[in-house]
Design a protein around this nucleic acid. Structure first.
Lengths: 264, 264
DNA sequence: CGTGCACTTGACAGCTGTCAATGCCGGTGG
DNA sequence: CCACCGGCATTGACAGCTGTCAAGTGCACG
């Protein structure tokens, strides 16, 4: 619970570089529909200059003014809540391309802590910019809406996992989930990936104590379901791990006919 | 897990009656901003004829075609997921005024089971109707978006509760939550309310077994934190229960200046 | 080479799940 | 009116998953 000191570092990169990376975000929306050039351009227009944060830095705390959103360009960031007894629950692990801070959109004070895990690059997105999108690009607004519903699905799945399954299944589900997201983001290509999260943090994600998280890690390893080399996790048989997680698969209905017509 | 037979009952009510009740929904959106007449009219336009379901009836199952949404006019409905080991997690308890089925909007197959608890009245809302709103009423679309973010907040809070707190705190949090929602909906006026949910179902909400849910109910009662008369729950000291839940309070930023301008 | 952090392990307690039995109550058929 | 029945609530006994406390190990870093 110690909050380290840090300085904001300006990357000195041009907006052009940001825009190149904005395709990351477009690819998240592109999960729902093929994006038009004007929609990609509109997304490019809402981010400001990128800022770098070191590892373990606070971007925004619970209770801080929630007057903006963030676009994560690079690095890993976690969203968490601290309960009144001081325990922490990690709500989401953010990957490059994610928009962060959206749940606090209806609130004046932020509901969540946003904290970097690794070095990270973040752009600010104003609330007014989102409004601008809603006013001018109905289909893109709908894609924002669909992304919010997808986030609900993720929370629903994690709620089911934590509420009704053993620690072993929870960890299995989390590891497979991270792997899948990294593949979608193009960061991982095979059935292995690097996991820069401490076991304490993973415990805060899946609702287990640090010690028990370690025990469950050991159990997964002993059973041959995962292999660990340093912070690299690999799956000898990912389908077995997926099955152990107990979670259903979700298939997105891309380019659904009921979507608003694309902007020119 | 037995699915009772039931028949759809046509209420024979006119659309006019539905529209009267649509103010329920408007009041949910009205939590974010004052609604204009045209926005309320637009909401009225998206529902079809109401249908009645008896208690314990299935509205839609996991895996069914997710080609529409539902508007709950009266009664209690639960949304749940069945995991591969057959256990159930209740994701949300829906109250009158709720839009149901939205998380499955990006999917072809429904992610959740929607099942009535009490007799309920439901109207169908087509996906295309939502698109129509997004295309013509930007501010109302933004209110839909804010409602989705609010649902994320609710899931985040329940995730924290289930992931990091004792059964006692979880039940306390759930009871206070239901009470608060019923007050907002105008169904409850004081610090008591009727809870038509079995303890088994409540256990599926807060991630406890039936037996332990009962033990925790007893403990809350013994401590004098709640009183039970039949299915009526009352709080002698609701603030004490709220505190026990460990959850933070959320304050909505109504009529935020960054919202799109209202439609005429 | 000392320090700090994360990981690991053992011992033990306790919260929670499971199994089983009982009681309560409203609905139903005789 | 009364016996029977099914669903739900309640309770006891016991097992086991998970948390807590404590100590040891390994490794990166100054």
């Amino acid at each position: 619970m110690i909050r380290p000191q840090y300085e904001l570092l300006d990357t000195g990169e041009s907006l052009h570089d940001v825009h190149e990376d904005m395709s990351l975000s477009a690819s998240r929306f592109a999960a729902f529909a093929d994006m038009t050039a004007s929609e990609i351009a509109a997304l490019m227009g809402i981010v400001d200059r990128p800022r770098d944060y070191p590892a373990n830095a606070t971007i925004r705390n619970e209770g801080d003014a929630a007057n903006q959103l963030y676009f994560l360009r690079a690095g890993w960031v976690i969203s968490s809540i601290i309960l009144s007894d001081g325990t922490r629950q990690v709500l989401k692990v953010h990957f490059p391309g994610d928009i962060m801070g959206a749940p606090s959109l209806p609130l004046a004070a932020s509901a969540e802590n946003l904290r970097t895990v690794t070095r990270a690059t973040v752009c600010i997105v104003s609330k007014a910019a989102i409004s601008q999108i809603f006013s001018t690009m109905p289909r893109l607004a709908m894609l924002f809406f669909l992304a919010a519903q997808e986030e609900r699905l993720l929370l629903m799945d994690r709620l089911s996992s934590i509420g009704r399954q053993s620690g072993l299944s929870r960890l299995a589900g989390f590891l497979v989930h991270v792997h899948d997201r990294l593949r979608i983001a193009g960061i991982s290509v095979d059935t292995s990936f690097e996991l820069p999260l401490s076991q304490e943090l993973i415990g805060d994600v899946i609702g287990l104590s640090t010690v028990h998280t370690n025990r469950v890690f050991k159990e997964l390893t002993t059973r041959g379901l995962i292999e660990r080399r340093g912070r690299t996790i690999s799956f000898p048989d990912i389908d077995a791990v997926r099955k152990l997680s107990g979670l259903p698969e979700r298939v997105i209905d891309r380019n659904a006919p009921w979507l608003p017509p694309p902007s020119p």
